[in-house]
Computed example of a mutant assay.
Amino acid sequence: MYRYRTGLLLQRVQERTTATKALLFSELKKAVLGAFLIGAAAIALLYTTFFVFLLVTEAAEALLPRWAAYFLAALVMLLLSLAAAGLGLHRVLRMRLAGAAANAYRKARQAFSPSW
């Protein structure tokens, strides 16, 4: 009787663990696809930004010498990229998503672990 209950409990734990792993992997697949699409959009935005700054530079040539217009546009692009990189790094360092997922998995394991 005792072995039957222990075996049944272990079977339920394994089923719950398998279900949790399947759920995590399905969410991971969605996240990878989303990251790929965001990366593709970022590349398109990068090319678009380049051509917008090229347009602004050509328009600024009416007021400034050609070298000064290109220098100004390059300086603005550099400042914007540094600001974006700083903001992105700040957000990544604040993010605790991976730790939260690991804690949820540990809590699920503890909830279904036998307490003998």
Rank of each mutant, 00 (worst) to 15 (best):
L55M: 09
L55C: 05
G86H: 03
A59D: 06
L63H: 03
W67S: 08
S81H: 03
L78I: 11
G86L: 11
V76I: 14
L82V: 11
Y70K: 10
R66M: 02
M95P: 00
G88I: 02
L82M: 13
V92L: 11
R91M: 12
V56T: 09
M77N: 07
A59L: 15
M95H: 12
L63Q: 02
A69E: 03
V92P: 00
L78S: 10
A68V: 13
A60W: 09
A84S: 02
W67K: 08
A73W: 05
R94W: 00
L75Q: 05
L75G: 15
A74P: 00
V76E: 01
L80G: 02
L54M: 14
A60T: 03
V56R: 00
L79T: 06
E58I: 13
L78G: 07
E58M: 10
A85H: 11
A84H: 05
L78A: 15
A73R: 02
G86W: 11
G86Y: 06
P65D: 12
A73F: 09
L72I: 12
A74L: 15
E58N: 15
R66I: 05
G88L: 10
A69I: 02
R94M: 06
R94T: 05
E61W: 01
L75A: 15
A62T: 07
W67P: 01
T57A: 15
L93R: 14
A84T: 04
L82F: 14
L79R: 03
Y70N: 04
L87V: 07
A83I: 04
E58Y: 10
S81A: 15
A60N: 10
L72T: 15
L54T: 08
A69S: 09
A62E: 13
H90Q: 08
P65M: 00
M95T: 10
A62C: 03
A84L: 13
R94Q: 12
L54G: 15
V76H: 02
L78T: 15
A85C: 09
